[in-house]
Amino acid sequence: MSNYVGSCSCGAVEVAVTGEPAAMAVCHCTICRGWSAAPVTGACLWAPDNFKVTKGEDCLGSYAKVEGHDRKWCVKCGGHVFVDHSTTYGLMDVYGSILQDFKFEPAFHVNYENCILPIKDGLPKFKDFPTDFGGSGEMLEE
Results as ranks from 00 to 15, higher is better:
H85L: 07
E105Q: 04
K72M: 11
H109T: 05
P124W: 13
G19T: 07
K127S: 14
F82G: 03
H109A: 06
I116P: 02
S36L: 01
A22C: 09
G137Y: 01
D121R: 00
L99H: 03
H80T: 02
H85V: 01
C74K: 02
D93V: 03
T41H: 08
C29D: 11
M1V: 07
G34W: 10
N3V: 10
G6I: 12
V75W: 00
K125M: 13
I119E: 12
M1I: 00
V13L: 01
S2N: 15
H80G: 10
A12D: 12
D132K: 06
Q100W: 07
V40S: 05
D49A: 11
K72T: 02
V83D: 12
V15E: 09
F51T: 07
A37I: 09
G61I: 06
C77L: 14
N111E: 15
G34R: 02
T30Q: 12
E141C: 09
V5Y: 02
T54S: 03
P21V: 04
I116F: 06
I119Y: 13
I31R: 09
M92G: 06
D121G: 01
T87K: 08
V5C: 06
L123R: 09
Y4I: 05
T41I: 06
E57C: 06
A22M: 14
N114L: 15
G11R: 15
A23I: 06
R33H: 00
L140Q: 12
C29H: 06
F104W: 04
H28E: 13
W73G: 00
K120N: 13
T30A: 07
G134A: 13
N3A: 15
A107L: 07
P124G: 15
S36E: 12
C8M: 08
L45P: 01
K103V: 04
K65R: 08
S86K: 07
G135S: 04
L60Y: 05
V5D: 14
S9W: 13
G134Y: 07
D49E: 09
E113A: 08
K55W: 01
S86P: 02
D128F: 06
G135L: 12
Y63Q: 11
E105A: 11
G122N: 15
A22T: 11
G90V: 10
E141R: 04
G78S: 10
H69M: 14
R33W: 05
M92C: 05
F126M: 03
F102S: 07
V5P: 01
N111P: 00
K103E: 15
E14P: 03
T54E: 12
M1P: 04
K103Y: 12
E105C: 01
V13A: 05
V5A: 14
K103N: 07
K120G: 11
A37K: 07
N114I: 12
H28I: 05
S97N: 08
C77Q: 06
N114M: 12
E113Q: 03
G96N: 14
E138K: 02
D101C: 02
I98C: 02
C44Q: 14
W73R: 04
E142F: 10
A47K: 09
H109R: 00
V5F: 13
H69W: 02
N50D: 08
S36K: 03
F133W: 09
D93K: 00
